[in-house]
Amino acid sequence: MTRRIKEIIIKYIFFLFALVSVIVLGLIVSSLFREGLPVFKSVSLKDFIFGMEWYPTYDPPSFGIFPLIFGSFIVTVFATVIAVPLGVLAAIYISEIAPQAIKESLKSVIELLAGLPSVVLGFFGMVIVAPWLQETFDLPTGLNIINASVILAIMAIPTISSISEDALYAVPNEFKEASYALGATKYETITKIILPAALSGISTAVMLGMARAIGETMVVLMVAGGAAAIPESIFDSVRPMPASIAAEMGETPYGSPHYHALFAIGMVLFFLTLMFNLIADYASHKFRQTGSATL
């Protein structure tokens, strides 16, 4: 009897450990709310989200984060446009075309790319891409939307590529064999059979890549330029939400409306990425490939 009780206690100890992730998530939400909600004593929710002016240090301050949301949105969209074709095509190369040896090294390359610290990529954007952009296009600054998008794309590619590759890999071999048996070329098999079958996994990959891009901080902090205004061209600077939080938190007195406003931006960012993640989760379940039948 004592051994059974011991086993049950052990099980519940592990259960408590497993709850830690949920508890931390709860603490994150409650911390954001606790420190973020007080800003709405100074500004209404509508003016906060849709306000066009972010002048947190003026007197009186103005806490409109629409330009910041727009900044996040625009760099994420451009980064996605760059990263999705590269990431998905590379995944196709790895899973369908590459010889075994190249396949393994390419997977390692992508893993290492994912491992590059974001501050390093930000630094690279600052000292390499920015001066080059500035000279080539004769711009006042190379720290702008296009620069941030390119660097963010580099960060999102590993996510998109590795998840897409898993999805392609999961397509049952019988599908491919059936297609070849009907005389289809490899290209036709890939585009007409494999890609459609892997579509749910690839959409998950794209959503997670976008979530990664929208939440990324150091890159947009270092290379997006930091202008809190709606841009007019892709060579303008922007100030995405994470950049604003990271840049201003250090100089903000604890408990000030500005401090609370930064936490409120954190709330917006949190729920935005949560939404992307939930859509990704939904996509992976909704369009799930029904596998090959087993006898």
Binding site: S31, G215, I245, G266, L269, T273
Partner: peptide, 13 residues
């Protein structure tokens, strides 16, 4: 969800 929380939000937390 925890895996998707942006690093700057972890910083705020």
């Amino acid at each position: 969800c925890l895996a998707g929380v942006p690093s700057v939000v972890f910083g705020l937390f």
